[in-house]
Every structure is written in C-alpha cells, then in structure tokens.
Amino acid sequence: EHKIILYENPNFTGKKMEIIDDDVPSFHAHGYQEKVSSVRVQSGTWVGYQYPGYRGLQYLLEKGDYKDSSDFGAPHPQVQSVRR
C-alpha cells in the first residue's frame, strides 16, 4: 500500500489531502488548491512535482515526516501532482 498525506501549513496543520494507492496528476482537479507545506508519508515511496501533469521540480518523498517543504527540498511550498 502507498499512503501520503499533504498539509497546507507546516507541522501538519491546516487543510489536508490524503492519497491512498493512487497517482494524482492535478491536485486542483481533486479539489485541493492549497499550498503543500508539510507531508507525512505513511507507506511507500512517492515523487511530488511542482506543477500539474508531473512537471517542474521533482521531490522524492520516502516514508517519514516532512514538517516543512524545505525538508523535502522544495524552495516554495508548491506541489501540484504526485505519483507512486
């Protein structure tokens, strides 16, 4: 199983989107239009992308907690697509 939770604010606060065993080419299409400032990967390895359609900067997200976007190497809290 692959499970990831994306949070609007640092330290796992604010609006969140939970994804289980699915690739998401556009967070906006899924109704999530917030920034991504923290991430909790509960299982599996994911790649987050700066822009929709798996474009832009890529961020490797392995199991663990990323309490701020800088923890996974993002210069800005901008992640708009993700895949396993």
Rank of each mutant, 00 (worst) to 15 (best):
E1I: 13
E1R: 00
E1G: 08
E1T: 08
E1Q: 05
H2Y: 06
H2N: 08
H2L: 02
H2T: 04
K3L: 04
K3A: 04
K3F: 04
K3Y: 02
K3D: 04
K3P: 02
I4A: 01
I4L: 11
I4W: 02
I5H: 00
I5L: 02
I5A: 09
I5F: 00
L6M: 12
L6Y: 04
Y7F: 10
Y7I: 00
E8K: 05
E8R: 04
E8Q: 15
E8S: 12
N9K: 11
N9R: 12
P10D: 05
P10I: 07
F12C: 10
F12M: 08
K15L: 08
K15D: 03
K15Q: 15
K15S: 09
K16H: 08
K16I: 07
K16Y: 15
K16P: 10
K16T: 05
K16V: 08
M17E: 15
M17T: 14
M17P: 03
M17A: 01
M17V: 11
E18C: 15
E18M: 10
E18A: 00
E18V: 10
E18P: 06
E18W: 08
I19Y: 01
I19C: 03
I20T: 05
D21K: 06
D22N: 10
D22R: 12
D22L: 07
D22V: 05
D22W: 04
D22A: 11
D23V: 01
D23N: 04
V24N: 03
V24E: 08
V24H: 02
V24W: 06
P25K: 09
P25D: 13
S26Y: 14
S26Q: 06
S26P: 01
S26T: 09
F27G: 01
F27S: 04
F27K: 09
F27C: 09
F27P: 06
H28K: 09
H28Q: 10
H28P: 14
H28R: 14
H28S: 13
H28C: 14
H28F: 10
A29G: 12
A29I: 01
A29R: 08
H30F: 10
H30A: 14
H30N: 10
H30W: 11
H30Y: 12
H30K: 14
H30Q: 13
G31P: 10
G31E: 09
Y32T: 09
Y32M: 13
Y32P: 11
Q33N: 06
Q33K: 12
Q33G: 15
Q33E: 12
E34F: 15
E34A: 13
E34K: 08
E34G: 13
E34V: 12
K35N: 03
K35E: 06
K35W: 06
V36T: 13
V36W: 13
V36P: 09
V36S: 07
S37W: 05
S37E: 11
S38A: 11
S38N: 00
S38D: 05
S38F: 03
V39T: 03
V39R: 02
V39E: 04
R40T: 10
R40I: 13
R40C: 09
R40Y: 14
R40K: 15
V41W: 02
Q42E: 14
Q42C: 10
Q42Y: 13
Q42K: 08
S43E: 11
S43G: 11
S43N: 01
S43L: 08
S43V: 10
S43C: 07
G44I: 04
G44V: 00
G44N: 05
G44E: 01
T45N: 07
T45K: 04
T45Y: 05
T45A: 08
T45G: 06
W46M: 02
W46G: 05
W46D: 11
W46I: 02
V47D: 04
V47M: 07
V47E: 07
V47Q: 05
V47F: 11
G48D: 11
G48R: 05
Y49P: 00
Q50A: 02
G53H: 05
Y54G: 03
Y54W: 00
Y54S: 01
Y54Q: 06
Y54F: 06
R55G: 07
R55K: 14
R55T: 09
R55A: 06
L57Q: 15
L57V: 11
L57A: 14
L57F: 12
L57K: 14
Q58I: 04
Q58L: 03
Q58N: 01
Q58R: 14
Q58E: 15
Y59Q: 04
Y59A: 09
Y59E: 09
Y59P: 07
L60C: 13
L60M: 10
L61I: 14
L61Y: 03
L61D: 04
L61C: 01
L61H: 03
E62H: 07
E62L: 07
E62Q: 09
K63L: 13
K63N: 03
K63E: 14
K63Y: 09
K63P: 15
G64C: 01
G64Q: 07
D65Q: 07
D65I: 03
D65R: 03
D65N: 10
Y66R: 08
Y66I: 01
K67F: 14
K67T: 04
K67W: 08
K67A: 13
K67E: 11
D68P: 11
D68K: 14
D68N: 04
D68M: 13
D68F: 12
S69C: 14
S69L: 14
S69Y: 13
S69R: 09
S70I: 11
S70Y: 04
S70R: 11
D71L: 09
D71P: 08
D71F: 11
D71Y: 05
G73S: 02
A74N: 12
A74K: 12
A74L: 05
A74R: 07
H76E: 13
H76P: 10
H76L: 13
H76F: 08
H76C: 14
H76R: 09
P77T: 07
P77I: 10
Q78W: 07
Q78R: 09
Q78S: 12
Q78F: 10
Q78D: 14
V79D: 14
V79Y: 07
R84K: 04
R84G: 01
R84W: 05
R84Y: 01
R84T: 02
